[in-house]
Amino acid sequence: MLLLPVLLAHLWLGEAVHRLRLSWDEAVAPMPKRLVVAYVRELKAAVPAIRPAAPTAKPKSRPKLQPAAPQPMPSPESPVPEPPEAASDAEPTTPEPAASAPEPGPQPGEGSEPKPPALAASEPASEEAEPGPEWPLSTLLRYRLSGNYRGEVHGNAQVEWIRQGQHYQMHLDVAIGPSFAPLISRRMSSDGRLTPAGVNPLRYDEDTRVMFAQRRRSTLLFHGDSVTMPNGNREPVPAGVQDASSQFVQLTWLFLTGREPLKAGHVIDIPLVLPKRQYLWRYEVLGEEELQTPMGPLATWHLKPSKAAGGGDLTAEVWIAPSLQYLPVRLRIRQDEQTFIDLMLNSAPRQAAP
């Protein structure tokens, strides 16, 4: 007779401790306020085009110079001096992207290099400045969900990509079961900045709720060259590191700007931090696949990690649609061979006004 009260007391104590921990986490690192945007138009499939990574700067007007007196020719041993303007205007990296160039930006693996000083100085310093045309407008994608979690499961999901100036948020919301009372729900949110080197996450939150079980939350805090893991450990990270949500935006940006080509056999390296550990993620482009969607058949490219994650971390395959601004039309998120969910686009994406 005493067993039931003891069990209930343990459950209450466990839930109280967990809520206290969540309250402590919120006090130490409160979650960012979710950005709100109005989605006013459907995104129509269109012929893909490589977008420039940054607008070409207009040439500055220079004062007219008076003819200088002839200078003596340097001897063969003397170094040839650089022209005065070369040091300030020369671009030390590859030329500006163009539609005709197969790889207009940095070569694969170089997307995380710092921006040349001359180009960085030409951009507005304000945090509210609009990023270049290489970033998609704020977009909402809705998916139908199927998969297996101790049996066949169904549900719904959505991806919300929001940008305001250089600030972005990426939310992946998944619900298994009926929408009014899901058995399992998970939100994976990334918050950070848009930079010349791509997506720069500052914080990642993973919030999981299971019916009749405790709520679980994991948070990653990025500090430039290091990250604070959910267990409190601070670890160094490489340049260009991404989280579980931001990696999909980074892939879209790499393809939109032509920094990475979509061709069978090509491999894209992305440093990735997941709640349990870090990975050097390698996405292999398997090839083209046509998917049947509510918008009709769509040509996509299938990307798959070269190996599975471990320790309970999740692995994600992605199908990218060039005609929809290289956005993910399908996602397959897998924990192991028996536990996975498959997300397929359920309606036309919606975008904010330009």
Score class of each variant (00 low, 15 high):
195 T>C: 06
242 Q>K: 06
210 V>H: 04
201 P>E: 12
210 V>S: 07
211 M>R: 13
229 M>L: 13
230 P>C: 13
230 P>L: 08
202 L>A: 14
235 E>V: 15
230 P>G: 10
209 R>G: 08
205 D>K: 01
199 V>M: 13
228 T>Q: 15
189 S>N: 07
189 S>Y: 02
193 R>H: 15
219 T>S: 08
248 F>N: 00
247 Q>V: 15
224 G>P: 01
211 M>L: 03
218 S>A: 07
244 A>D: 02
249 V>R: 07
241 V>A: 08
191 D>C: 09
227 V>K: 00
234 R>M: 12
247 Q>F: 08
206 E>T: 05
220 L>N: 12
248 F>W: 02
216 R>L: 14
187 R>C: 10
246 S>H: 05
197 A>M: 09
238 P>L: 12
202 L>V: 04
186 R>P: 00
245 S>I: 01
246 S>I: 02
236 P>G: 04
236 P>E: 00
227 V>F: 11
227 V>D: 10
208 T>H: 05
188 M>Y: 13
243 D>E: 00
193 R>C: 00
187 R>G: 15
194 L>D: 11
251 L>A: 14
213 A>D: 04
229 M>T: 06
208 T>M: 09
204 Y>D: 01
233 N>L: 15
243 D>W: 07
230 P>Q: 14
188 M>D: 15
198 G>D: 08
227 V>Y: 09
192 G>C: 07
249 V>Q: 10
210 V>M: 03
201 P>A: 10
221 L>V: 03
252 T>N: 11
198 G>K: 11
191 D>F: 15
